[in-house]
């Protein structure tokens, strides 16, 4: 067992972990944060997406012990005392999910995506500069699978929030 200190949703955690435990299983099994979902455990579906030090990652592909000192934000950390985050509210309004299983990952992914857009980071479809358009969002959200097929609505939800921030 290895000692591990990290901050999750603003709260400091000190724990001892089996070195084989993934960040996802640390959240779900050791800390009871079951909002992050396991869809494939192989980094293929994005259901486990969380934000580590401001970047979105697949938490199933990352060992917990490699996150000593890191700041992690999960779906449980998105809402505030004022209520749902703008993206969470937009997901509900636009029906950007059906079964809801991929949703925590979609929202974590989209939350980090908004920051990427603000920083002007290009994607493979970016021409001269990053533009708020379907194709840009579509490309950046293609690592998050949704079997219910809510993709169009996911784009609508993200674009609405992105445009409000721009």
């Amino acid at each position: 067992m290895y000692p591990l200190q990290l901050t999750i949703n603003g709260k400091a955690h000190e724990t001892n972990v089996d070195p084989r435990v993934s960040l996802l299983d640390l959240l779900r099994e050791n800390l009871g944060l079951t909002g992050s979902k396991k869809g494939c455990d192989h980094g293929q579906c994005g259901a486990c997406t969380v934000i580590v030090n401001g970047r979105r990652i697949n938490s199933c592909l990352s060992l917990a012990v490699s996150h000593d000192g890191d700041e992690v934000t999960t779906i449980e950390g998105m809402a505030s005392d004022d209520g749902l985050s703008p993206l969470q509210a937009a997901f509900v309004r636009h029906d950007a999910f059906q079964c809801g299983y991929c949703t925590p990952g979609q929202i974590c992914s989209a939350t980090a995506l908004l920051e990427e857009l603000e920083r002007g980071e290009p994607s493979v479809v970016t021409k001269e500069r990053v533009e708020l358009a379907d194709e840009e969002i579509r490309e950046r959200m293609s690592g998050n699978l949704c079997r219910c097929g809510a993709y169009n609505n996911i784009i609508d939800a993200i674009l609405e929030v992105a445009e409000a921030r721009a």
Binding site: I75, V92, G100
Partner: peptide, 21 residues
């Protein structure tokens, strides 16, 4: 009408089978 269980799903509070403790 918005999905009535929507807020639970977007906050990670909806308990799927593997989330049951």
């Amino acid at each position: 009408l918005d999905r009535v269980e929507g807020p639970l799903k977007v906050t990670g509070q909806a308990t799927y089978a593997a989330d049951w403790r």
